[in-house]
Amino acid sequence: MHPHISTFYLASVRVRAAELLPWIVALAAFFLFPDFLSLGARILIYILLVLSLDLVIGYAGIVTLGHAAFFGIGAYTAGILSAHFGIKDPLLQLAAAGTVACLVGFGTGLYVLRTSGLTLIMLTLAISALCLEVANKATSWTGGADGLSGVTIAPILGYFRFDLWGKTAYLYSLAVLFVVWWLVRTLLNSPFGASLAGIRDNRTRMEGIGALVNRRLVQVYSISAGIAGLAGALLTQTNQFVGLNALGFELSGEILVMLVLGGVGRLYGAFIGTAAYLIAQDQLAKKFPEDWYLGVGILLVGVTMFARGGLLGALDSLTARLRRALKL
């Protein structure tokens, strides 16, 4: 007999010190850069969105170019609840946005995840385009191309009002991101996460051991859509406005770039990639208002060519080299 059998999967693995770093940095930024809290909140919201994308692309191997659809659905759900139904409680809006996006993810996932490769990419793109067009045409509900205004948000838990400096928005987004990160981390370190890794490694073999591969993919796709919906609701609540660009293909492409920049399938790639992209975008746009995209392009080409596995991959290589050098 073997007295010790290691604990099931990684669920019990304690949080490593390095995993606390993003949260320490985020809290420090709140105090050190009070003038950049709006940008900070935007970064946190996009991290949430990119994290949801990593769940499907990095962990389940589902390639999608239409993930912004769920972000937009969440954004419009929160906005419509406030502007048309007078539901202004942010947590209620958040729950509704996540649920609606999750349900749409489930419904579309049942259909699109039967396909793979180019067909899958095209179908996700088509669903995103359909959502965009629906939002564009349903002007009485969404405001169409002018966007949905008249969104007002009640104080969080009745106490914390969204202020002009973005303090509440920043801390609120940070809190939501933290909770979702913890849930995603737990999920990925559970048997569910292991089965996703198995599907990504070898789908046919997973079927060969009797796994319900398609069901797993639909589940993760729905969860990811729900998280993207939460991110969308956060954007609506912090901006008090929703525009069509929340659903656009450009956003789907942009978040993919952020993920690749940070490192796909790494959980923390979303954190570093999104922060690097949005900070670079902000700084470059200030210095080179006409050509800032060129700078972002150069950054991406540089990372793709010289940092396999994104910025986190580069960090890994650097750490390994340092370790070797210190041993010598």
């Binding site: 059998i5 099931f8 048997p191 292991a194 890794a197 796994a211």
Partner: peptide, 11 residues
Amino acid sequence: SLTVEENLLIA
């Protein structure tokens, strides 16, 4: 990308 134990438990 799974450990020995995960390879077994997943099946």
